[in-house]
């Protein structure tokens, strides 16, 4: 097996075990503002871990499908993709797919 020079465990594995430890061994002992802040830390770690996974590939694919996003925004604003236009339904579906992919990283509960 080739060696890439990095010591394991990697980013994902470290974030996972660190977050598990925070949730199971630290947060139960906290109250008030410290507990609130520790829960925010746990949330940030969960988002960071999901950034380094399959959801990120789904986001990139959904963005690629949209092409030039700044130009798309200008066209949407100008009414070029209004209901009834040729690619209205396709673009609506692509934007929804992108929003869902972004939620898989930032807010997976929103998909439920």
């Amino acid at each position: 097996m080739s060696w890439d020079g990095h010591e394991a465990p990697d980013t994902r594995a470290l974030l996972e075990i660190a977050r598990t430890t925070l949730m199971e061994a630290v947060i139960p002992a906290l109250t008030g503002d410290a507990r609130f802040k520790a829960l925010m830390v746990a949330n940030a770690m969960a988002i960071a871990r999901r950034e380094d996974g399959p959801a990120a590939a789904a986001v990139h694919a959904a963005v690629r499908e949209l092409g030039d996003v700044a130009a798309l925004c200008a066209a949407i604003r100008a009414g070029a993709h209004d209901p009834g236009s040729a690619d209205h339904d396709r673009i609506a579906a692509s934007l929804r797919a992108l929003a869902e992919a972004r939620c898989r990283i930032s807010a997976p509960k929103a998909l439920g």
Partner: peptide
């Protein structure tokens, strides 16, 4: 990171 779920809404 609240923005994506608002976009989905």
């Amino acid at each position: 990171h609240i923005v994506p779920e608002l976009e989905l809404d």
